[in-house]
Amino acid sequence: MTGAQIRFLTLLRRETTRFFKIKRQTLGAPLLETFLYISVFGAALGSRIDQLHGVDYVVFIIPGLIMMAWATNAFSNNSSSLLQQKFQRSIDDQLSSPASPLELLLALSLGGFLRGGIVAVLTFVAARILIDVPIEHIEVLLPGLFLVGFFFAQLGVLVGLRAEQFDDVSFYQTFILQPLIFLGGVFYSATLLPEPFETLTQFNPVYYMIGLVRYGFIGYSETNIALSLVFLVVACTALFALNLRLFGRGYRLRA
């Protein structure tokens, strides 16, 4: 293995070590949260709701919950990890190493991506045991989920870079991310909304992400799949390029 490969794997291992060391908070809590959503919205409320677009209500919401698990965990992992390291200045040990901005950014991004992926997979396995969740279009599901995870991982890095205190991170999570996800149609179909809310939903980017994942699982979508994929690829590329530029400049990392 070359020095650069060892370096990159160590940077990545630092991220995974962090979230495994506090796994009750980083893996246990999100799993419990998803389980509670399934119980409350699926089993309790869902028993009162007829089928939605040809599937049981609980099956209809599972794709959105899995996407939400990946997105929120990728985001919160990266924003918190980066801010904590900036706060403790422990990031200086990495910044004074030969690691390039690309290596630093990729390792940090993948940390959150992997944590989100683990929570999403465990959510899927648990849901699959309890409910018969189909997978109709794996060729859309996998790239869709990967792109969503990568997008929110990058967003987490960006917010972590900009943040100067923990309140900054929780602001983005509570006042921007959560409303976008909840109003993006995790728990309902936008076609059921009265105007102007149905039209407004179409301006929410998360709506298209949920559409992709839901199509992958149950074969139903209210959005254009090809366009959504293209939009996500462009958004991921733009965000990654922005973060790379900021890392290269040492934005809020180097004096």
């Binding site: 650069a4 060892i6 370096r7 160590t10 291992r13 070590t17 403790q88 422990s90 040990d93 190493s97």
Partner: peptide
């Protein structure tokens, strides 16, 4: 500027890894 999540031994090990 030590990493709070790491032990003493891990701090040395990770630093060595950062330097390849």
């Amino acid at each position: 500027n030590l990493d709070w999540f790491l032990t003493i031994e891990e701090s040395l090990d990770f630093h060595g890894g950062y330097f390849g």
